[in-house]
């Protein structure tokens, strides 16, 4: 398993573009978070927005690049036929999948950590300028604050789970374009569906099964009580999606010729 992981690491390290995607994840996440922290304004006490969540808005954009990293790392091997060599070297397919999932998730978590720290820092610096001041009931963002720490740590885990989801779907679908379509559909269409239905019960149900909506509940610090799920339970929904995707991927990998 250690050797398989090392081999996967070497492959990922030498794939052109992987480091660019990780850097892009950080840049997009921090940039959108900084934009949100600049343009959303708080004019009076009790103005409403959840400042931590606002600073972490960029996760909604950065996740696309993490998904792309996962899909390219898997589908690239199918495109070039390298997968047959990989399977000849590591015949235990489950081990191969686990190693691949591990080496994609590791860098995703690392990039996620940098992106989240950058976003929290940007929020701490920019939010007071937009009216999120102690006088309006918003102390500066700080990781020493329990809910903010949970939101930040949860967002890092969120990136890791998106990577696992991407790996699972990519192994199951194999074609890079189709895999990217499925992952992005899962990530971005649920929030739209929530908005398109009129019935509030259906809205809450869709919200609770959506990988993005429920998963990002982990970022809620002030309005958590109004959400259908608790923050960690929400992240658990995303974890269930990732586990299901990996199980499906493992099944396809076992059953189908590469």
């Amino acid at each position: 398993m250690r050797r398989a992981t090392l081999a996967e690491w070497t492959k990922l390290r030498t794939v052109p573009g992987a480091s660019g995607l990780l850097a892009g994840t950080v840049v997009l996440t921090v940039a959108l978070g900084a934009l949100a922290a600049t343009v959303v304004r708080c004019e009076a006490a009790g103005c409403g927005p959840d400042a931590t969540r606002l600073a972490l808005t960029g996760v909604q954009l950065g996740q696309a690049l993490v998904a792309l990293l996962a899909v390219t790392a898997v589908c690239g091997e199918y495109g070039s036929g390298m997968i047959r060599t990989s399977l000849a070297a590591v015949p235990r397919r489950g081990a191969l999948l686990a190693a691949k999932a591990a080496v994609v998730t590791g860098p995703a978590l690392a990039a996620g950590a940098v992106a989240v720290l950058g976003s929290v820092l940007a929020g701490r610096l920019l939010l007071p300028g937009s009216g999120f001041t102690p006088e309006h009931g918003y102390p500066p963002l700080s990781l020493l604050d329990g809910p903010t720490l949970r939101a930040a740590a949860g967002s890092v885990l969120y990136f890791g789970l998106i990577a696992l989801l991407g790996v699972g779907i990519a192994v199951a679908v194999r074609d890079p374009a189709a895999a990217a379509g499925v992952v992005l559909g899962l990530l971005y269409l649920f929030p739209l569906a929530v908005r398109l239905v009129a019935d509030e019960d259906v809205q809450r149900l869709l919200w609770a099964v959506s990988p993005t909506n429920a998963g990002l509940a982990v970022q809620a610090t002030t309005d958590a009580a109004a959400l259908p799920l608790t923050p960690w339970a929400g992240l658990g929904v995303l974890a269930a999606w990732a586990a299901a995707a990996l199980a499906l991927g493992a099944l396809v990998l076992h059953r189908r010729d590469a």
Binding site: G17, L61, A64, L65, A67, L68, V71, T72, C75, G79, D175, P176, A177, A178, A179, A180, G181, L184, Y188
Partner: peptide, 16 residues
């Protein structure tokens, strides 16, 4: 020329 990158670029341009 890469399927995954192109899908993500198009989705990021239109849907996101």
């Amino acid at each position: 020329r890469r399927g995954a990158a192109a899908v993500i670029a198009a989705v990021a341009a239109v849907l996101v």
